[in-house]
């Protein structure tokens, strides 16, 4: 391994590249936001789908109170006798009010408001229930009973989740590519600025790897500096957004939270930025030097 030799002018005199850490900060900021957004949504959707995946909802919408109560009893009996169904519970008035409040506002759910009876059904994950057969049996009790297994909803959600994740990945790839292009440009500009210095180093017997080491070290520091600044800004932005969303959400949607493990992963982003910057600079310098005598 060749030894690092200090032969380049100080960073502050390096016109071509001294702004690079700030541009790197912007790149890391964008990629960290994309990553964090993706991870938060992934976790949020994950929790949601997890909570819905073993649940069924049955709504009994018959207008007549007495008939409805009879139908509710019958359907609860049917469900309890169905293999694979672990638990059936009818939501009480307070729970139904709580479900409606985010849409109608607190205190606006009056007793004369026609609301259906809702049964919350917990299904065993181990048993595969034939929902079509179950639906057919429920229909025999009444045409006003509706079974919802949330699959249509979940399907849309999963597609959205995939879309969001692919978009975030796409943004990340674009940012990485832009960063690589920027480092190549910066390295070439830096080399052009110091062409004479590099030529002298060569005449004195410096190997290409010695010259490359000086540049790769410098660009690694740029990457690290920019990475730390960008990540800090991304954290500030996200925490601010979460804080604001808590005020606005009012219970309609679940407020996302910063997932601890994933946030820990983000701490390596500056190191990745530094590594990309360092490797790109090294490859660029070595390739350019090979064209010299």
């Amino acid at each position: 391994m060749t030894k690092a030799i200090h032969f380049l002018p100080d960073e502050k005199n390096h016109e071509a590249t001294r702004l690079l850490p700030y541009v790197m900060a912007v790149m890391v900021y964008l990629s960290a936001l994309a990553l964090m957004g993706s991870m938060m949504l992934h976790k949020g959707f994950g929790d949601w789908t997890e909570s819905l995946s073993n649940r069924l909802t049955v709504q009994v919408t018959t207008a007549d109170q007495e008939t409805r109560e009879t139908e509710v009893r019958k359907v609860m009996q049917l469900l309890r006798n169905t293999p694979g169904i672990e638990h059936v519970r009818k939501l009480n008035e307070v729970e139904i009010e709580q479900l409606l409040e985010p849409w109608l506002g607190a205190g606006n759910v009056t007793s004369d408001l026609p609301v259906p009876d809702i049964l919350d059904v917990t299904v065993s994950r181990a048993v595969d229930i034939n929902l079509d057969a179950l639906n057919a049996q429920i229909s025999k009790i009444s045409g006003n009973i509706h079974l919802d297994d949330h699959q249509q909803w979940l399907g849309r959600f999963l597609r959205l989740m995939d879309m969001v994740e692919y978009t975030a990945l796409g943004i990340l790839l674009l940012v990485v590519m832009a960063t690589i292009c920027m480092v190549i440009f910066g390295t070439k500009a830096g080399m052009a600025e110091n062409r004479e210095t590099i030529a002298i180093m060569h005449h004195l017997g410096a190997q290409d790897s010695m010259v490359a080491r000086a540049y790769q070290n410098r660009f690694m520091i740029y990457g690290l500096k920019g990475g730390v600044i960008g990540l800090l800004l991304a954290f500030v932005t996200l925490i601010s957004l979460i804080y604001l969303s808590r005020d606005l959400a009012s219970g309609l949607v679940k407020v996302p939270e910063l997932p601890t493990v994933e946030v820990g992963i983000l701490l390596v982003v500056p190191i990745i930025a530094a590594a990309i910057s360092m490797l790109t600079a090294r490859i660029t310098v070595m390739r350019d030097l090979r064209r010299m005598v």
Binding site: K3, I5, F7, I200, M201, H203, G205, M210
Partner: peptide
């Protein structure tokens, strides 16, 4: 062809460092 940002000592030391 001295390196202007290095001192006389640093310039002369370059071949040895290399």
């Amino acid at each position: 062809r001295l390196l202007d940002h290095l001192t006389a000592v640093e310039n002369v030391a370059l071949p040895l460092r290399i």
